[in-house]
Computed example of a mutant assay.
Amino acid sequence: MTTMIGYLRVSTEEQADSGLGLDAQRDAIQRYADAHSWDVVWYLDEGVSAKSLDRSQLQAALTRLQVLPKRRDVDGIVVAKLDRLSRSVHDFSGILKLAAARKWAVVAIDLGVDTSSPTGKLVANVMMSVAEWEREVIGERTSAAMQAAKRQGKHMGRVSALPQSTGHRLMTLRTTHTIAGTANALNAEGLTTATGAPWSANTVAKVQKRLLLNHSAPVSPRT
Score class of each variant (00 low, 15 high):
1 M>D: 10
6 G>N: 08
7 Y>D: 13
7 Y>M: 12
7 Y>C: 11
15 Q>L: 02
15 Q>G: 03
16 A>S: 11
17 D>K: 13
17 D>R: 15
18 S>D: 03
21 G>I: 03
23 D>Q: 14
23 D>Y: 12
26 R>D: 08
30 Q>Y: 05
30 Q>S: 14
31 R>P: 02
43 Y>W: 11
47 G>C: 04
47 G>R: 04
53 L>K: 06
55 R>E: 04
56 S>D: 13
56 S>E: 14
59 Q>V: 07
60 A>N: 14
60 A>R: 14
61 A>I: 07
67 V>F: 00
68 L>C: 00
72 R>I: 02
75 D>E: 15
75 D>F: 07
76 G>R: 15
80 A>R: 09
82 L>N: 06
86 S>E: 13
87 R>Q: 12
94 G>T: 13
99 A>G: 12
101 A>Y: 06
103 K>Y: 01
107 V>M: 12
109 I>D: 10
115 T>F: 09
116 S>N: 14
118 P>R: 12
121 K>R: 15
122 L>M: 15
130 V>K: 07
133 W>M: 14
135 R>F: 07
140 E>N: 04
141 R>N: 03
144 A>V: 00
144 A>I: 00
144 A>T: 02
145 A>P: 00
146 M>C: 01
147 Q>F: 00
151 R>F: 00
153 G>T: 04
155 H>A: 13
163 P>N: 05
171 M>P: 02
171 M>L: 08
175 T>V: 06
176 T>H: 06
179 I>Y: 03
179 I>C: 02
180 A>S: 03
183 A>P: 00
184 N>W: 04
185 A>E: 09
188 A>T: 15
191 L>V: 07
191 L>I: 12
195 T>K: 13
196 G>W: 02
198 P>Q: 02
200 S>M: 01
200 S>R: 05
201 A>E: 07
202 N>D: 08
205 A>W: 00
206 K>A: 06
209 K>V: 01
210 R>L: 10
217 A>V: 14
218 P>S: 06
221 P>F: 03
223 T>S: 07
223 T>Y: 04
